[in-house]
Design a protein around this nucleic acid. Sequence first.
DNA 1: GGTTCGGCTGAACCACGTTCAGGGAGGCGA
DNA 2: TCGCCTCCCTGAACGTGGTTCAGCCGAACC
Lengths: 156, 156
Amino acid sequence: MDAIDRTLIGLLQEDAGRTYADLAAAVSLSTGAVHERVRKLRQRGVIVRTTVDLDAKSLGRPVLAFILVETEGWITKAVHRASIEDPRVEDLHTVAGEANFLMKVRVEDPAELQRFLRSLYDVEGVRRTRTLMVLDTYVDRRPGVLPVSGESSPPD
Amino acid sequence: MDAIDRTLIGLLQEDAGRTYADLAAAVSLSTGAVHERVRKLRQRGVIVRTTVDLDAKSLGRPVLAFILVETEGWITKAVHRASIEDPRVEDLHTVAGEANFLMKVRVEDPAELQRFLRSLYDVEGVRRTRTLMVLDTYVDRRPGVLPVSGESSPPD
DNA sequence: GGTTCGGCTGAACCACGTTCAGGGAGGCGA
DNA sequence: TCGCCTCCCTGAACGTGGTTCAGCCGAACC
C-alpha cells in the first residue's frame, strides 16, 4: 500500500469505469503493472467489490431517518434477522452509549416510517425507539482514502 | 423503470464488473438492448456512478462512531466546511430530533476520535456533542433496489 | 390502414482487458 | 565484490467484450 496504490484506489472510487490505460497514465506506469496492482488490492481485500451508486430519490425512498433502539436483554439476532433482508435498512450497528442499536433507514414517506417503527416493536425485547429525521444531507459517502500529503510527481 | 431495469440495477450493484452478455442473459435480452437500458439509467441519474467499495480496516480506520452535535444558532455552513474535505466523515446530516447534526466518522483509534471531537468544538457555535461508539456492524450498505414481488419470467 | 415512435435483434468493428516473456534494481549471503 | 534471488516493471500480442447501427417489430394514435 504505497502512494501509487492509494492514488489508484482514489481514482477507482471516483470512477471504476476508468480504463487501465488511464490509470497507468495517472501514475506513470504501464497498463500491465497497474493491472497487477489492482488485482492485488482486490485479492488483499482492500477493494471489496465494484458496484454502482444508486440515487435513493429515483428509487422512490426520499425519506431518511436514524433510529436509536433500546432493548431489554441481548436480542442482537432478532433485530439482525429483522433487518438483514430489508433494503430500506442501510446501517445497523450495536453501539455503546445512549442506545443498544443504531439503524439508518430510507423509506418512501413518513407513513412508511411509521409502519417500519411499528414493525420494530413487534421484535421481542424492543422497549423504546428514538428517531432522528434527516432534514438535509451534506455528506453521504463510504470509506475513502485519506489525502496523501507528500505526493510524488514523476521525474521528467 | 420496469422490472427488467430493477433486475439490472440489482445485478450491477452486486457486481458492476458483469459483462453486458451476462446481464443480457439474465433478463433475456440482447446485449445491445441491455446496453441502451443501462445507458438510460445513468443518464436519468438512477445510477449515479460506478465505484469500488473499500475496506475501512484495510485503510487503517477500524473505529466507527456516530456523533450527535448540538449547536447554538444556525451554523450549517461552518460544520459543513469543516467536514466536506475530511474523508473520515462519511455522513453529515441536519436532523430534527435530539440534535442539530448527526455525523458518522471512521478513525484510526480512540485517540484520533478524541482529537476529532476536540476539533469539532473549535467550530464556532458547537455547544455539545454526544457520541455513540459502534461496537459491531451488521449492515452497512447503500441505497438498493427493493425486491420485486411479481417477477415476470420470459415466455418460452 | 397508415404513420410514428420506442425498443429490440444481430452483427460488425475496434478498444480494452489480460497475459506473459524479458529485463532491471535492490537485498542478501558467501 | 560477486552471484543469486526476488520483486516489480515494460512492452507487445491476443482475444474478449464494449459499442454502434441498420433494420425490424409491435403498440398507440389518428
